[in-house]
């Protein structure tokens, strides 16, 4: 028996919004420690890793490990039937071929349940090496979204360059060149408005705008986003899911021939 109840159901709605453009199907791996998802997009350029810890749920029961393969487009359609303040419960029997989503209004006066077929997905899991990143940049998630949106007008790629002075985002194309520089904030009233940079060595990498734009669908999840970069390795873009986990996107860089 698997059952996970989340009073803050809108977190799950937001997680799905942040996945559905990148992935059409994926497996949710459930264990007594929580729920995890790891999947690459079809082109193997990006990977999404989601973690939802058991202790972040209001009730969590997972008697035996199970992998629930889901069509994320369908799951997203179902979650869109939940109101933002609904309590969401996910339920499945052991070795079941379907999953049930229950949405309860806060006053318990409306209860809806939706059943969805599970899929048998033969998914390969990737081992992501532990990496000490050369530069770790934290910035407001909305600011990052804006920068990527703005620079996407100029070209297909964004160059992210991190130095002691700050971080620079650049794009070039037919209409011209765009550069956006962010300095580390000296002092801020609110922690979530800060730009912080931890840098061991300067890094410059080039990434496809198309993917970065899809990652920013997770902006609704967290006030801050963390970018981790090292020379010639994939970028990590991380959004926290409340205090229960994270959505992490990995993106392979563009490499000079």
């Amino acid at each position: 028996m698997f059952e996970a109840r989340l009073v803050q159901g809108n977190l799950l709605k937001k997680v799905l919004e942040s996945l559905k453009d990148l992935l059409t199907e994926a497996s949710w791996d459930c264990a007594d420690t929580g729920i995890q998802l790891q999947a690459m997009d079809n082109s193997h350029v990006s990977l999404v890793s989601v973690q939802l810890r058991a202790d972040g749920f209001d009730k969590f029961r997972c008697d035996r490990q199970l992998s629930m393969g889901m069509n994320l487009t369908s799951m997203s359609k179902i979650l869109r039937c939940a109101a933002n303040d609904d309590i969401i419960t996910i339920k499945a029997q052991d070795q079941a071929d379907n999953v049930t989503f229950v949405f309860e209004s806060p006053n318990q006066e409306k209860v809806a349940d939706y059943e969805m077929k599970l899929m048998n997905l033969d998914q390969e899991h990737l081992g992501i090496p532990e990496t000490d990143y050369a530069a770790v940049i934290k910035l407001p998630a909305a600011e990052f979204q804006r920068i990527i949106k703005d620079l996407s007008q100029f070209g297909e790629s964004v160059v992210i360059s991190c130095t002691k002075e700050g971080v620079k985002f650049s794009a070039a194309g037919d209409i011209g060149v765009g550069n956006i520089k962010l300095a580390q904030t000296a002092s801020v009233d609110k922690e979530e408005e800060a730009v912080t940079i931890e840098m061991q060595e300067p890094v410059t990498l080039t990434f496809a705008c198309r993917y970065l734009n899809m990652f920013t669908k997770a902006t609704c999840l967290a006030p801050q986003v963390t970018l981790s970069m090292s020379p010639e390795v994939p970028l990590v873009v991380e959004y926290k899911i409340g205090d229960m986990g994270h959505v992490r996107y990995y993106l392979a860089p563009k490499i000079e021939d």
Binding site: G127, A252, K254, I255
Partner: peptide, 14 residues
């Protein structure tokens, strides 16, 4: 010119 790398280059299948 630059080319798009894939993650298979960096991450091994477990």
């Amino acid at each position: 010119m630059s080319r798009q790398a894939t993650l298979d280059t960096f991450f091994a299948v477990r």
